[in-house]
Design a protein around this nucleic acid. Structure first.
Lengths: 160, 160
DNA sequence: GTGTGTGCAAATCATTTGCAAGGGA
DNA sequence: TCCCTTGCAAATGATTTGCACACAC
């Protein structure tokens, strides 16, 4: 993975190209996302983490920033069924090539950082006449080594 | 696909086993789901369709019914990013073996009624020590024959 | 200055819940 | 009777919006 400052620079450029500015709020939001890349943070979680370093920020700004990042394909807005939107950084080229394993028992969420769907996308193209631009693949189940039998899916999307 | 009355009977039994009753509201909700199997209806859409035949029903009942059906694995509660939960009937054994194609241009949603993930589930099991119980696979992109270039994803999950 | 970005508070919208009443075993 | 179920209205909680102000080019 790239250096955080490099990432920020690159996204700074992306913003400028589209006529947006890199503000302290946006930069901090980005840092928080980069530093917690493995967790799939909700807007509220991002807000609290940003607030630790920049206490004047308002939650509406975080929502607006995340929405902007989603439009620019910097992050992906996902919903794992716990009632809040969660934000997942995309890859270096803003590609989306990872999948999720979600443990039913402890709620842990692990990423598979590979793209397993090349063949299936070909199949979709030929059999269904559908040109794929993005995909989403989540597996739910249980980790063999999941010890956490009492806490049942408490709505946290914590990295494993 | 099975006869609607047979389906209802079967689900009736599932309910009884768990100590629940088949009420007119539940039966109508089920009928609406079966009759619109290809559309992925939201709770509000189900509510309006049920209301046409049973005008006294309250929307809370529909929410509670759909939640119950989801617990019993009769339907699956899904989120396609348009801000509402949508409900997808499961197969005859309450299995979940279909995938989605979502057109970015017209918003159409088509189901692939096959399970393409057997191999990948094996891979997850061996490489990640994760026992899969369910999965979700959505592709977004464009249908080659999508004519609908002006209407951009209006939030409807209409069957194609 | 013009337009973009921000914080605050109020508004919105889907969904959930409390509660009193209905109805079947 | 007991417990499940329902409709209504009110509550909830995440997200969005209106607005006045601040800031950068």
């Amino acid at each position: 993975m790239m250096n955080i400052m490099e990432e920020i620079d690159k996204i700074n450029q992306q913003l400028r190209i589209k006529g947006y500015k890199m503000t302290p709020q946006r930069e901090l939001t980005l840092k928080v996302l980069l530093e917690n890349e493995k967790d799939h943070l909700s807007a509220e979680e991002v807000f609290m983490l940003v607030k630790e370093r920049h206490s004047e920020i308002g939650i509406a700004t975080v929502y607006r920033t995340l929405e902007l990042f989603a439009e620019l394909h910097i992050v992906e807005k996902m919903n794992f069924g716990d009632g809040v939107a969660r934000f997942d950084l995309r890859g270096p080229d803003n590609t989306h090539m990872h999948h999720h394993l979600i443990c039913n028992v402890c709620g842990a969420l692990k990423e598979i950082k590979e793209d397993w769907l090349g063949q299936l996308e070909e199949r979709v193209k030929h059999e269904y006449g559908f040109q794929v631009t993005d995909h989403r693949l989540d597996f739910t189940g249980v980790f063999n080594n999941c010890k956490n039998t009492e806490c049942k899916r408490e709505g946290k999307a914590k990295a494993v």
